[in-house]
Structure formats: C-alpha cells, structure tokens
Amino acid sequence: MENFFSILGGMGTQATESFVRLLNHRTITHKDQDYLNYVLFNHATVPDRTAYILDETAENPLPFLLDDIAKQNLLKPNFIVLTCNTAHYFFETLQEATKIPILHMPREAAIEMSHRQNGGKVAFLGTEGSVKAGVYQRELEKVGFEVMLPKTQLQQKVNDLIYRDIKENDFLNKDLYYEILAEAIEKCGCASAVLGCTELSLMEEFATGHKYNVVDAQSILVDRTIERALSDRKKADHS
C-alpha cells in the first residue's frame, strides 16, 4: 500500500473506534476507492499513561510507544496520528524517534480554539495525567487563552466519567457529562471548554443537544487528518 498514514491508538480502544468512525464518516466518498488509506495500531496493552505521569514508579508506557514508532518507521507512512491525549506528554521523545511527522492533537485543538474565540477564559477537561502534564495549558496559553483547570471535586467527576463509567463499564453517562460541562463552563465563568481526553470525545459524539460551547480535540484531529491525507493524495496523483 502506498500513500497512507498510520493511527497509533488503542488508548482506549472505544475512543479509537470513535476516531476511525468519524474519520470514515467525514471523508467525502462516492465509491470504495474514495476512502483514505491507513493502518491502525490498536495497542490496547500500553500501560496507563496517567498512572505513570502521576507516579513514575508505575509501569512506563514510553518503551511501548517507542516500539510502536519503530514498527511504523518500517512501514513508512506519510504521517502518524496519535489519538491518545495523555500520551502527548511523550510527544517530543516520540517525534525525535522518527522522521515521519506526528500530528500534535493539543496544538491543533488550541489553534482551532483561537479561530473560534478571541482569547478569554476556557476550561480544560481531561485526565489527571493530562492536567499535570500541562500540554494543553501550554498550547492554549500560547494562543492567548486563560486556562481553567478543574478543582478536586470537578476533576473527580471527570475521572469517574472516564474510568468508572466509560472504560470500566462501557456506560456513556450523559447526565454526569452534562453536569461536568455546566460546572466547568457556567459555574467557573468560562466561555467554552476544551475536551482533552478521547473518552470525553466519545461522550461528545453521542451526548448531543447540550447548549455548551465545546472544542473536541479528537474531532479537530479527525478534520486535520483528512485534510492532510487528501493533500498527500492530490500530490501523489499529480506527480
């Protein structure tokens, strides 16, 4: 297969399935050959990223991710899509391990937010690992936003939704999701929220109809992936 990209996912698997579903759904097609060429690495057994970021005595996911990058180097995709937000804690090390460009989901989300909103206060919602890593906070502050990080009680609700409900019990808890958005945006005085966890992106895909202004990082990554893949295809067709 020529002219393809690779998806480094499986963290978690349901969220990766959501990414691929959106990718295929948003690709404009009239026949089978219009869909995009890609290889999916659904590496479900990568150790928990948040557990390691919070406690470095936990199993380190980086060697597993570097092994994935090494395998993708052999395949030589045009670019790599890293679908786990928390794994962007290791982004620089992963990018140094390959000449193949890796799309940076937090950066793309921050750029998109800057197009939709001219500065102001935004809430960041993600795993405790993503909060501690500070990747989203840095990218959002670069483009002029004040970032509200969840206090303990709100973060616990986010944790419960991600781990207890979605990862452990395959339960899309819409009531808790709406409660989190209301607290993050209304009670904290933010104009909008950035979803920086793919389980929250999965929630946003199915919990439609709420009134809140949300920028879903995974959704933005889907769009950027399609744009880049179609651009690569066009270049190949004209070469």
Score class of each variant (00 low, 15 high):
Arg164Pro: 07
His115Glu: 10
Phe206Thr: 13
Met1Cys: 12
Gly12Glu: 15
Thr50Ser: 15
Thr27Pro: 05
Asn3Phe: 01
Arg26Leu: 06
Gln153Gly: 08
Glu227Met: 13
Ala207Pro: 07
Ile111Pro: 06
Asn37Lys: 02
Asn169Gly: 03
Met11Tyr: 05
Leu161Lys: 04
Thr198Ala: 01
Asp237Ser: 15
Pro101Gly: 09
Leu82Asp: 00
Thr152Leu: 09
Ser219Arg: 14
Pro150Phe: 01
Glu227Ile: 15
Asn173Cys: 11
Glu17Pro: 08
Asn118Gly: 09
Leu54Trp: 05
Asn173Thr: 11
Asp55Val: 04
Thr83Glu: 00
Thr83Ile: 01
Gly9His: 02
Met11Trp: 03
Val214Glu: 02
Lys99Val: 12
Asn85Arg: 04
Val81Trp: 03
Met105Arg: 03
Phe19Glu: 02
Ala191Arg: 13
Phe90Gly: 06
Met203Ser: 01
Ile180Arg: 01
Phe145Trp: 01
Ile220Lys: 10
Ile69Phe: 07
Gly120Met: 00
Ile162Phe: 04
Thr98Gln: 10
Lys157Ile: 09
Met11Cys: 05
Leu23Asn: 02
Ala182Lys: 15
Asn169Val: 10
Asp216Leu: 07
Thr98Phe: 05
Leu40Asp: 07
Glu186Asp: 06
Glu92Ser: 08
Leu65His: 06
Ala123Thr: 10
Gln156Ala: 02
Arg107Thr: 09
Ser114Phe: 09
Ile166Val: 15
Asp223Pro: 09
Glu141Tyr: 10
Ala184Gly: 07
Glu108Pro: 03
Asp67Val: 08
Lys71Glu: 07
Tyr163His: 03
Ser114Leu: 04
Leu8Val: 12
Phe64Arg: 12
Gly144Ala: 00
Val39Leu: 05
Pro101Ile: 12
Ile100Gln: 04
Glu17Lys: 14
Leu181Gly: 02
Lys99Phe: 13
Leu103Phe: 06
Asn213Val: 08
Ala217Tyr: 00
Val143Ser: 03
Arg228Tyr: 13
Ser219Phe: 11
Glu128Ser: 15
His88Ser: 04
Gly134Ser: 09
Lys76Asp: 11
Leu154Val: 01
Gly196Ser: 02
Ala236Gln: 14
Lys99Glu: 15
Cys84Trp: 03
His104Gln: 08
Ala184Lys: 03
Ile111Cys: 05
